[in-house]
Design a protein around this nucleic acid. Sequence first.
DNA 1: CGGTATCCTAGCTGATACTG
DNA 2: CAGTATCAGCTAGGATACCG
Lengths: 132, 132
Amino acid sequence: MKTRGEYSSMKPGSISNTCEVMSIWEVLDKRWALLILKNLSTKEVIRFTELKKTLSGISSTVLAERLLELQRKGLVTKKIYPEIPPKVEYALTIRAKELEVILKELARWANRWKSTGTSKTMTTIAVRKKPS
Amino acid sequence: MKTRGEYSSMKPGSISNTCEVMSIWEVLDKRWALLILKNLSTKEVIRFTELKKTLSGISSTVLAERLLELQRKGLVTKKIYPEIPPKVEYALTIRAKELEVILKELARWANRWKSTGTSKTMTTIAVRKKPS
DNA sequence: CGGTATCCTAGCTGATACTG
DNA sequence: CAGTATCAGCTAGGATACCG
């Protein structure tokens, strides 16, 4: 793995910014994270390649990276079957089940959306009253 | 603005991939998008700089870019007061209000989270039965 | 199958400058 | 204030190749 930067970008002067606390948003805000969680919630367990297929466009590099991050945050579990060919099952943790509900709502909202063309661009210019 | 790439990355061979349909996830999945929406929902209207301050780390370039994308998707409205200095107010559209509810749940979940250290890394290795 | 290593491009930030 | 423009520098993600 590389994972060198990790978004931090702290100034050279700042002292030991070993701030591990950071919110869960740090991982949720990354690309694919929500979609992964959402698709993870469609089945009890899911395998790497299966998950990859549902996420059209993701690279295995990033999928593996995200799954690790989610795992570290305690949202995903990983079960390895030491066989050849390998078999790995990913699943949501209990704590992620709460999130699951929310995600499903979000997914339904996203589906319900669909319509209304891409460029509405609602911009209003407030007119000033003329000085009478 | 530049906005050249737009994530598409289609091969030079592919024919006229003018696929405008794409789901709302296309914009929601981008960095900062959810956070912007979330913070937008804390007030009825909010100004650019004010919003920027709540999003620690974002650059004005990207904030402007995201707001435009959200606007195009019909989630955000923009109201310009032609004054000097300029004043611009951003707000959620009615359609985004549904999303707002979900986002608030998500935010509460994220806050409720907080605890349990960063590296639990629940990985299970399934053991094989020995051939008796 | 489920990754990791490598290389290269796309995306984001920071700084600075400029405008209405 | 609310941007846009530009450039440097670093990070994130995609494609491909390879391995146990």
